[in-house]
């Protein structure tokens, strides 16, 4: 009965939604507002060799990306507050020697790849967050195969409160630096190419490392 009701509700919602969606300007045609207004300006101003998505993320809409790293940070502290006190972790699994060997074998390569993704993000697909997910996934993989203790060993205990905030902190630093050099918070100084590059890389690294620590801690908070 309840299922029927819900299905009826979902259908009832879907019909006007589909009607409205179908009435949108035809997607893919180059003359609709989405291509002729702001986006066109971004593409016309694009530098010689750059990933425009990363440029939008870090430069034009840097505030959103700052918000985004604060969102995952907020999720982490919310989960940490929720954590039960004094709960026993699950016993560590006994890993198969083959799986263990393979995981140990690929771990350094994956880490290298993750840093590659983080550092080349402003010219190719990728960036801080994607690298963070790969690094975090690496820790998760080790945790699932060898037990949470092994995953915890990846994280430096003393520096943890600073590292987990690396993303927002990097943004704050870049924001202040930009404010000093360009006169606007979160601006990137086009007239100082070295500093510009350093700020981009710094922010990407901050997002990458901070994100990886956050993903790993989220997993650890749930596992133990």
């Amino acid at each position: 009965m309840k299922g029927r009701l819900a299905a009826a509700f979902a259908t009832g919602v879907s019909i006007p939604m589909i009607a409205a969606m179908a009435a949108l300007p035809r997607h893919g045609s180059p003359d609709q507002p989405i291509h002729t207004h702001v986006a066109r300006h971004y593409i016309e101003q694009a530098p010689e060799s750059a990933n425009l998505v990363t440029q939008v993320l870090l430069d034009y809409r840097g505030m959103d990306t700052f918000g985004e790293v604060v969102v995952i940070f907020a999720a982490l502290v919310a989960v940490l507050v929720l954590r039960a006190r004094g709960e026993r972790p699950l016993p560590a699994p006994s890993p198969s020697p083959i799986v263990g060997f393979i995981v140990r074998l690929v771990t350094p390569f994956f880490a290298l790849f993750a840093f590659h993704v983080i550092l080349t993000g402003h010219e190719a697909p990728g960036g801080g967050l994607q690298g963070a997910a790969i690094l975090g996934g690496l820790v998760l993989m080790n945790g699932i195969v060898f037990g949470p203790e092994r995953a915890r060993a990846f994280l430096p205990t003393r520096a943890l409160p600073w590292l987990q905030g690396a993303g927002p902190l990097a943004f704050l630093a870049a924001g202040i630096l930009g404010g000093i050099t360009t006169g606007f918070a979160l601006g990137y100084p086009a007239h100082l190419p070295v500093l510009h590059e350093a700020m981009l890389v710094g922010v990407e690294l901050g997002i990458g490392i901070g994100g990886a620590v956050i993903f790993s801690r989220l997993y650890l908070a749930m596992e133990a």
Binding site: Q130, G136, G137
Partner: peptide, 26 residues
């Protein structure tokens, strides 16, 4: 949209599924 695809693969399919599986197991 290679950037979005990469993120969805790493975050949506990777991390989210990991978290789901951990919670389901527990």
């Amino acid at each position: 949209a290679p950037d979005v695809a990469l993120t969805e693969a790493a975050v949506g399919a990777g991390v989210t599924t990991f978290l789901f599986l951990v919670v389901i197991a527990r």
